[in-house]
Simulated assay, not measured.
Amino acid sequence: MEYKARYITEDIKLSCYEDNFFKSDIMFDQHMLVWFLSGETKIVQSDTTYHFSKGDIFLIPRNQLATIINYPKDGQPHKTVVMHLSVERLRDYYLNLNVRPKVFKSQKIYCFKDHPLLESCLASLLPYFEMKEIPPDIASLKITEAISILRVMDESIDNVLANFEEPGKINLADYMEKNFMFNLPMEKFSYLTGRSLATFKRDFKKVFNTTPQRWLTRKRLELAHYQLAEKKKKPIDVCYEVGFENLSHFSFAFKKQFGYPPTGLLK
């Protein structure tokens, strides 16, 4: 994978993947506003799959689990403008506003297609990626502008952007059954379920009577078998969507579990 990035600040970047494919399982620590210039992305969450391409603008809320799969398209690389909306910056923005967000747990990605104000705001960033000397306050001004536009476009967005709570302790079994396909470090799973790593492992053993890694591997293979047998998906697509990092490891683990390779279900 050849990856290139240009920065105005650490919160605003022009991201470019030149190769044919890039996949990552991610937990977003900050809200991310993304504008597509070229290429294509598939974002897989526990209950839905999104497809984005040139011209699309979307907001991914923080503390969300997702599998990100990036592709070039029509001979063009996967290229996006990415703006991070950090908790610190949002606290400053909302400091003097009388906003009381409703607390809700949402996996929703907010999509904003063909909105002239938001697209104009993000397009105005492009010249700055070519400049060596950048006005010192430009990033802060542009992020403030973007937040203001988002609030005009969707009144419910305050419930996301002005919510500064950290994950609390939640039902471990329900959460893991819903999110096992994301290949994240155990530290991330423990944080998102409101536990220390030691408490997470101890509670996991009580609930599932096995280790997290063994349980995760079994669950991912069972989901893969269903996707191949019932949904007739291709092994390469199933491999990445259920949490494996490469096709050879997936094929080896699948055959060890079921006695035949993934391709055996295609016949």
Rank of each mutant, 00 (worst) to 15 (best):
residue 112 F to Q: 07
residue 32 M to H: 10
residue 200 F to L: 07
residue 155 E to K: 10
residue 53 S to E: 15
residue 250 F to Q: 02
residue 171 N to T: 13
residue 253 A to K: 13
residue 109 I to M: 08
residue 140 S to E: 11
residue 251 S to F: 00
residue 99 V to C: 05
residue 161 L to P: 01
residue 21 F to A: 05
residue 140 S to A: 10
residue 11 D to S: 08
residue 226 Y to T: 11
residue 177 E to N: 13
residue 69 I to D: 00
residue 266 L to S: 09
residue 195 R to T: 15
residue 146 A to K: 00
residue 220 R to V: 04
residue 192 L to H: 04
residue 187 E to A: 09
residue 77 P to C: 12
residue 50 Y to C: 10
residue 27 M to C: 13
residue 97 L to M: 07
residue 173 A to V: 13
residue 108 K to P: 05
residue 118 L to G: 06
residue 260 Y to Q: 00
residue 169 K to H: 14
residue 113 K to S: 15
residue 5 A to Q: 13
residue 171 N to F: 13
residue 235 P to R: 00
residue 82 V to P: 02
residue 41 T to G: 01
residue 146 A to T: 02
residue 255 K to V: 00
residue 234 K to R: 11
residue 92 D to W: 03
residue 240 Y to E: 01
residue 151 R to L: 11
residue 246 N to V: 05
residue 45 Q to V: 12
residue 19 D to T: 15
residue 161 L to M: 03
residue 97 L to P: 03
residue 67 T to M: 04
residue 156 S to A: 06
residue 17 Y to F: 14
residue 227 Q to V: 00
residue 191 Y to T: 09
residue 90 L to M: 10
residue 32 M to A: 04
residue 180 F to N: 04
residue 210 T to E: 15
residue 104 F to Y: 11
residue 24 S to M: 04
residue 64 Q to N: 14
residue 52 F to I: 13
residue 177 E to P: 02
residue 245 E to H: 10
residue 105 K to R: 08
residue 46 S to Q: 13
residue 246 N to R: 08
residue 25 D to L: 09
residue 229 A to M: 06
residue 236 I to T: 05
residue 135 P to M: 10
residue 99 V to F: 07
residue 249 H to K: 11
residue 143 I to F: 02
residue 102 K to E: 10
residue 181 M to S: 09
residue 237 D to Q: 05
